[in-house]
Design a protein around this nucleic acid. Structure first.
Lengths: 243, 243
DNA sequence: CGAACCTTTGAGCGTCCTCAACCTGCGTGG
DNA sequence: CCACGCAGGTTGAGGACGCTCAAAGGTTCG
């Protein structure tokens, strides 16, 4: 029954059909469930021996800090996402991770990954797929910041999350709940908070999207998609999820 | 003997000690050697069923094109790098890939990866590490474009390649051969070619780096590192390679 | 009911862009 | 051997997008 599957299982199933053995191994990723308060820093850049997580509920974000105190948010994470996979593969974590809302997440150790790979090679491919998809999202984010205007960037961002949330059943093309602040958006999009506010106002006045009180509402999904030149191919989830 | 190892083997060895069986499996990635001319587009965004490669000689770059004709270069690739891994895992390739110089590369099929994972789980982890390292580089690139000034961005870029090339024995802290044009730099750094030129001139006049005639020469490695706030941690190769 | 956090708006400024030349080196062909 | 084309590099002038500084409303929660 689809609704009983964990968000991670739902996500990986978009890539490969998982056998019962695969599913059993995957279930091993869901021991050690923990919960964290908003703002809690779960992984700190430069830290060694940190663990990774699978996010079950809530939103988190990964970021890097610069010496002058500025920060660049690399990605927001939603249920079904791995958190800090790189920090268990690397000698020292290259990024920080913080809970945006109250979250629930299951801790996974490097040994869990290694054991799973030895036991279920198909799962190794699925995990590599998930990691590659994460990379594809970072790449698209890079394109946004490098070559799109502030407005296009914002539109693209809001549409990406509509699509990602749809994959785990948390949103559709009418809108979704989005707990991030305008400061978060600024740090993610490489803008100032002031400019984020102006951009959001403009998009609202144009009748495209409304971002208010923790809710994103699409007023004209089609025109917004055109403005952002949003193409879901990079998310590799081309089923009829958002149709 | 270290010099006889392929660049990929050298790179992966920085992460795990590979057994003879692992090495034998890795060698299987080097059948089907091919060569391509400068400018050849090896993978096209949107293409299905494309293959991946391991780069043996020369430079390549991966990029995305926007509808208005602008392009964002995501990364340059040097010997030992995987090319287009994502395009064999995804239904359709999310990026394009082009040879910058004349290159030599070995084609790898999805089945090569799957077989290797089933045969050598340690290798699966090593490949996941390499993919994560690629992601870490994209992330750092994102930080550069999002939060660093044009000058810092350029400095950071030039230093990253010094470090990456050192890992496969192609450069050191005095400098390295770099076949990319100022147009390439502009597309990579999210700048205009005109501004790239001005930034390079300034860095040269300040006695920091010289980028000329396909060669990067560090005039003051230390000050450049400070300017860029360059920290190699994200490359996860903390051996004394560049010392 | 105050404090912290978030949102909103205005005014002035700076980084980087666009447009427009011109220069250089190099390979090709008349 | 020079003429030409072309890719890449260099420089100037003016303009725009997004930033900084500053201040004032809203909301939420202890």
């Amino acid at each position: 029954m689809l609704t009983e599957l964990s968000p991670l299982t739902r996500k990986l199933s978009a890539f490969v059909a998982l056998s019962d053995a695969d599913l059993a191994t995957l279930a091993g990723f869901d021991r050690r469930r923990r919960s964290f308060q908003p703002g809690h820093e779960m992984i700190h850049e430069g830290q060694t021996g940190s663990s990774a997580f699978v996010l079950a509920k809530g939103w988190a974000c990964s970021y890097k800090l610069l010496p002058d105190g500025e920060r660049q948010i690399v990605d927001f994470h939603i249920p079904g996402d791995f958190l800090g996979l790189r920090s268990i593969l690397f000698r020292t974590s290259d990024h920080s991770l913080e809970a945006v809302t109250r979250i629930e997440a299951s801790e996974i150790l490097a040994s869990d990954i290694l054991d799973a790979f030895a036991r279920a090679p198909r799962l190794a491919t699925a995990v590599l797929w998930a990691a590659s998809r994460d990379e594809a999202m970072v790449v698209e984010h890079l394109v946004s910041i490098g070559r799109r205007s502030a407005e296009e960037r914002m539109a693209h961002f809001l549409l990406e999350f509509a699509t990602r949330l749809a994959l785990v059943g948390l949103g559709d093309r009418t809108g979704y709940d989005c707990p991030v602040t305008q400061y978060h958006l600024a740090d993610a999009l490489g803008l100032s908070a002031v400019h984020v506010n102006r951009v959001l106002r403009h998009l609202r006045e144009e009748g495209l999207v409304t971002f208010q009180k923790g809710r994103v509402t699409f007023d004209d999904f089609g025109r917004l998609t055109t403005l952002a030149t949003f193409d879901t191919a990079y998310l590799d989830q081309n089923g009829p999820l958002l149709r």
